[in-house]
C-alpha cells in the first residue's frame, strides 16, 4: 500500500511538473494524460473505484482528447518551443512554492474531526446514485443544462462560417 501510494504520487507530481515545465505543447499534453491515470490510481487506493473509472473515461477519454485536438488545430509547422513561459516565470514559481509551504503548514497544524464509522456492507455505486438522484436532484439536472449550454456554445462559437 505504502509503496503504491508513493509510486502513484511520485508519478502524478512528476507528470504534472513535466506538463507545466515542458517547452513542447505535444509533450505537455501527453504528460498530462499520464498524470490523469496516476490520479485514477490514487482514487483506487482510496476505494473510490467508480470515480477512478469516471476519471479515466472523462479525463483521459474526453478532456485529454479534446486538448490534443486543440493542440493540433492551433499549430502550424514545428511544435518545438510551442509552450514557452511568459516573463512571470520566476515570480510565479516563487509564489507557488510559498503558497505550497503555507498550505502544508496549515494541513499539519490542523486537528481533524474524528472519523465517522462506515456503513457496513454498503455499495458505493448505489449510494452515489441515490445521493445524486434524490438530495442532489436539482444540481444534477442543472449540470445537464450546463452541459447543453457547453454544447450549444461549442457549436455557435466553434463553427466555421462561410
Amino acid at each position: 500500500m505504502i509503496i503504491i501510494f508513493y509510486l502513484f504520487s511520485f508519478l502524478l507530481l512528476a507528470f504534472a511538473l513535466g506538463t507545466v515545465l515542458s517547452k513542447n505543447l505535444v509533450h505537455s499534453a501527453l504528460l498530462m494524460i499520464g498524470s490523469f491515470f496516476a490520479v485514477a490510481g490514487l482514487y483506487i487506493l482510496l476505494q473510490a473505484e467508480f470515480l477512478a473509472m469516471v476519471q479515466i473515461l472523462v479525463y483521459v477519454g474526453a478532456i485529454a482528447v479534446l486538448v490534443v485536438f486543440g493542440v493540433m488545430l492551433t499549430r502550424k509547422g514545428s511544435v518545438k518551443d510551442s509552450n514557452l513561459p511568459n516573463r512571470y516565470k520566476k515570480v510565479g514559481a516563487l509564489s507557488a512554492v510559498i503558497f505550497f509551504a503555507l498550505l502544508v503548514r496549515s494541513i499539519i497544524n490542523t486537528s481533524f474531526p474524528a472519523p465517522s464509522s462506515p456503513v457496513v456492507g454498503a455499495n458505493t455505486i448505489i449510494q452515489i446514485a441515490q445521493t445524486l438522484l434524490t438530495q442532489y436532484a436539482v444540481a444534477f439536472e442543472a449540470l445537464g443544462v450546463l452541459l447543453l449550454v457547453a454544447i450549444i456554445g461549442a457549436i455557435i462559437i466553434g463553427k466555421e462560417t462561410k
Binding site: Y136, V138, A139, A142, L143, V145, L146, V149
Partner: peptide, 10 residues
Amino acid sequence: FITLYIGLEL
C-alpha cells in the same frame, strides 16, 4: 454548496 456552485457555473 454543490447546488450553489452548479448554479454559479451555469
